[in-house]
Amino acid sequence: MNVAGGRGSGSVMNVDHILKTLNAHQVAYLLIGGMNFLVRHAPLLTYDVDVWIEDAPENLRRCERALGELQAEWGASDDDWGPVADKPAGWLRQPLFCLTSPHGSIDVFRSVKGLGSWAASRAKAYAGETAGGVAFVGLSDADMLESQMALPEGERNQQRIRVLKKALRQAEDGRDEP
């Protein structure tokens, strides 16, 4: 399985290429973090693609294959750093990973602080599409807010919290209208 779109300015832009490859490998994931906020709400200076994946053995293997195709690199230590495609299957073991790739930095989470089960968040998630037409599933506003509030106070993004609270209030008001 190989998704067209090479380095940099190919036919598929870099974040689109990451999402498209995860989709092609049928990885059960939720887009979280700054990119999810950016595509749903407002501009934000963010350069990582953060995904929370379902922590199930088959899904972990699919994600490993997708990251291999994305030419992602990671290592358990500096000495061990290299293409994940060269690592034996089953390397995706620790709770989170920060990887490099020619398409951008990718953070993979097997659990997210402040949130319960992946399945519960998946049930509340929204189906989105990037400007390039690539489909993705993103964490709901309520869960984005929960995960922000779970951060240490000094690390919370106050602008993001304000926007999310406002969006949730507006959604609530919309439901109240006859």
Binding site: R7, G8, S9, M13, N14, V15, D16, L38, V39, R40, H41, A42, P43, T46, Y47, E73, W74, G75, S77, D78, W81, C98, L99, T100, P102, H103, G104, S105, T130, A131, G132
Partner: peptide, 27 residues
């Protein structure tokens, strides 16, 4: 650990591509 393994030129290319992608989003 990731920071230490980015090649500076490659990182700059990736950042520019990410900014271009972000600029194209509806928000």
């Amino acid at each position: 650990k990731r920071e230490a393994h980015w090649d500076p030129a490659e990182r700059w290319r990736v950042l520019q591509a990410t900014i271009t992608w972000a600029e194209s989003q509806a928000t």
